[in-house]
Nucleic acid binder design. Structure first.
Lengths: 165, 165
DNA sequence: AAAGATTGAGCTATCAATCTTC
DNA sequence: GAAGATTGATAGCTCAATCTTT
């Protein structure tokens, strides 16, 4: 069932079954999760062409744009990608096994180490990136620039509030 | 790093590292995924108070609102919840083991069966639902009713386009 | 052959516990 | 004791393959 029909049906169903409750908040939250899931699937299909996943590309792109040649700590990656440290460990393990990143000793703290792109890893990001941007552009095609800006503004407002709590 | 700072940093980083590319599509897509992940976490924390997960409550709520007493087929649940049939099987297994749903034979098609709420399952949804709506209301508090409607409109437009492709 | 549901393999995430280093 | 990173347990999802029934 498509998203618009689903939302209309949910509204109708709940107004019949539980007229004492408002289904309004659901009707805002569900499309956020739905679009996110749809985007994940599309991006997953795209990255599989390069033997990558959205998660692994996230690491490569974060390292590429942040750009200190010495690399980033795992805890910094965790913070930037908004996932837990164990999840970063798994992503890095996977990328290291494929030769796209390396772990290097931290200069002053032996508990930590630095994750950095290999030459092959950097070349891969730089090759994939333009296609990735083009693909994202395709997905966003139905929205005008103004609509995209508006969407971003609303979502940031929501995110800030949840993050603050 | 909070969402607003992250987006600004991403924009700055890419304009320095790859000025030939536009980071604009990313700056729309990332907050969608970010807010969705934040909401998942919040809802997960909420439902854990009732020994539930967002995924399992989704099944219970779908059955409750759709409301045919005979139940829904697994394939219908798959369609309504927008997840694959194997994922529905797992969710239903879990809920059945806890006594909140039952599988019943389909009247005319022996390949299929109907998933329906038990009395305890129905009572659980009805108990949790008002708190769930209240919690969602709390999460959406920073957005006015107009902003929520706008957000929904933009997301539905995006979803429809991706679903059609 | 097609449809409904399940199983198995593979990924990725979380949380809690652990190990080493500060 | 606290911080950085990892491991183990648990759980969710996808896809591909399978089994039964239509």
């Amino acid at each position: 069932m498509n998203t618009d029909d689903l939302l209309n049906r949910i509204e109708l169903d709940w107004s019949r079954e539980r007229p004492d409750l408002t289904s309004l908040p659901m009707l805002t939250i569900i499309p956020v999760q739905r679009v996110s899931a749809l985007l994940d699937r599309e991006l997953g299909a795209f990255f599989s062409r390069f033997d990558l996943t959205p998660a692994s590309f996230d690491v490569l792109a974060t390292l590429r744009r942040s750009a200190p040649v010495e690399g980033l700590q795992l805890s910094q990656l965790s913070n930037l990608m908004a996932i837990t440290p164990p999840a970063v460990t798994k992503r890095v393990d996977n990328l290291e096994a494929r030769g796209w990143v390396q772990r290097a000793d931290h200069a002053t703290d032996r508990r930590a180490f630095l994750v950095r792109l290999t030459e092959r890893g950097r070349a891969l990001v730089d090759e994939v990136l333009p296609h990735h941007v083009e693909n994202e552009e395709r997905l966003l095609a139905p929205l005008s620039q103004d609509e995209r800006a508006l969407l971003r503004t609303l979502l940031v407002k929501l995110a800030q509030s949840i993050e603050a709590s």
